[in-house]
Write a protein that binds this DNA or RNA. Structure first.
Lengths: 214, 214
DNA sequence: TAACAGTGGAACGGATCATTCCGGTCTGCT
DNA sequence: AGCAGACCGGAATGATCCGTTCCACTGTTA
């Protein structure tokens, strides 16, 4: 640890450290594309052997859990950063844009059920909800939201954006932004608009992915 | 065929005829829920043995193909029926509502790639596109569509609705209707609205699911 | 009552994976 | 210089899953 030369160096230690990064990035890319991808696909994408993976993670579930937790943290960070924005509506839309760009929704929701969550994740998820609600409330206060929109509509909205998929990831991001714009326009207050049909989404209605079994 | 008693009867022939229905219905339910479900799941859901399936279909791929083709036909039928509606906007929204309710999108797009399509399906798909375009053009002519919406946005819209999923299928339908309403509001013309970001979706951009391999 | 259409479900064979294991290689310390 | 061991690539392993085939059985039809 003390003998590390000053530069980018190519020692085993350095390669290991770099692999930490490379593997996580590969895992994110692979599991974002297909939540049930084999672990070998991650190794291949990262350009490393399978051992390099198992040296770092106890198993597939462990890796998935970490990935998901990272996504959750990113979500929280995005929300906190957005809350700093003074303009209520801009904070709201900025938050959603950030979440969509980072593809956090796929990372969290779509990976749910593939592992047993930790307590800390539960706490973070709770906090994430609080922050999102705060953002939503501010958006509502700005008067630019249609009156019959509810916080839970955000789940629907994010799901809809995550559903947009084309082979090219760059293009996917563009199309998701477009989708987001349409959805935000749809959630905006418009004078003569008729109300949304059916009972609005309720609180616990999207947690089913997290419940083990069934 | 000539000896069938007049009633609902319980002969082998009758059971077979009933199984035709039951199996297709089960297959639709199962594969709608999970496109890669095992074929045994269909048999179980239908309450029949596996043989009953293989007597009717050459294999899994055959069943999937038929299911998908049925969906495509339903889509076309829905479009034709909608075109009969005199009001342009009502025809447009009615069509989308019908397609969403029937979950045709999952049946067609999500099953794509799991089988090699027939030529007839190609023709039907072409016709489906023509009809959808006609509906869209009429909607545009009604002036209620935002100017920067394009036909391909319909693909995005249907995908977004199909992405809505909760365990209860009845509730799923309700939430999809809500989602559809939001999206239609988002695609509606609004005086001061700013244009949608990024290049609009292009023609061949969603066909990738149909291409075999990769 | 003799053939047989129609069926349930066990059995088979192939494919897919997560995980383990076994050399090898290079490093960092002595 | 030399060695202990961190790290690594990838083959081997064992379990699981699934599509398809096969066979014995049952009620029906002629």
């Amino acid at each position: 640890m003390s003998t590390t030369p000053g530069k980018t160096l190519a020692g085993r230690r350095a390669q290991a450290a770099r692999n930490d990064e490379v593997i996580l990035e590969a895992a994110r890319a692979v599991f974002l594309d297909d939540p049930k991808a084999p672990i070998a696909a991650v190794a291949e994408r990262a350009g490393v052997g399978i051992s390099a993976l198992y040296r770092r993670y106890a198993g597939k579930e462990d890796l998935l859990r970490q990935l998901c937790h990272d996504g959750l943290r990113r979500y929280v960070a995005e929300a906190e950063s957005a809350l700093a924005e003074p303009d209520d509506w801009a904070a709201f839309t900025g938050f959603l844009g950030g979440v969509v760009d980072a593809d956090v929704h796929s990372l969290t929701v779509h990976l749910a059920g593939t592992f047993t969550p930790t307590e800390e994740m539960g706490r973070d998820a709770l906090r994430a909800n609080e922050l999102a609600t705060a953002l939503f409330d501010r958006a509502r206060a700005s008067g630019r939201l249609r009156p019959d929109a509810v916080v839970q509509d955000l789940g629907l909205l994010l799901e809809a954006c995550a559903a947009v998929r084309v082979p090219d990831s760059k293009r996917t991001a563009e199309l998701r932004r477009r989708q987001l714009a349409v959805l935000l326009a749809g959630l905006s207050a418009v004078p003569g608009a008729e109300p949304l049909p059916g009972p609005p989404p309720a609180a616990g209605e999207f947690d089913w992915r997290w419940r083990r079994g069934e």
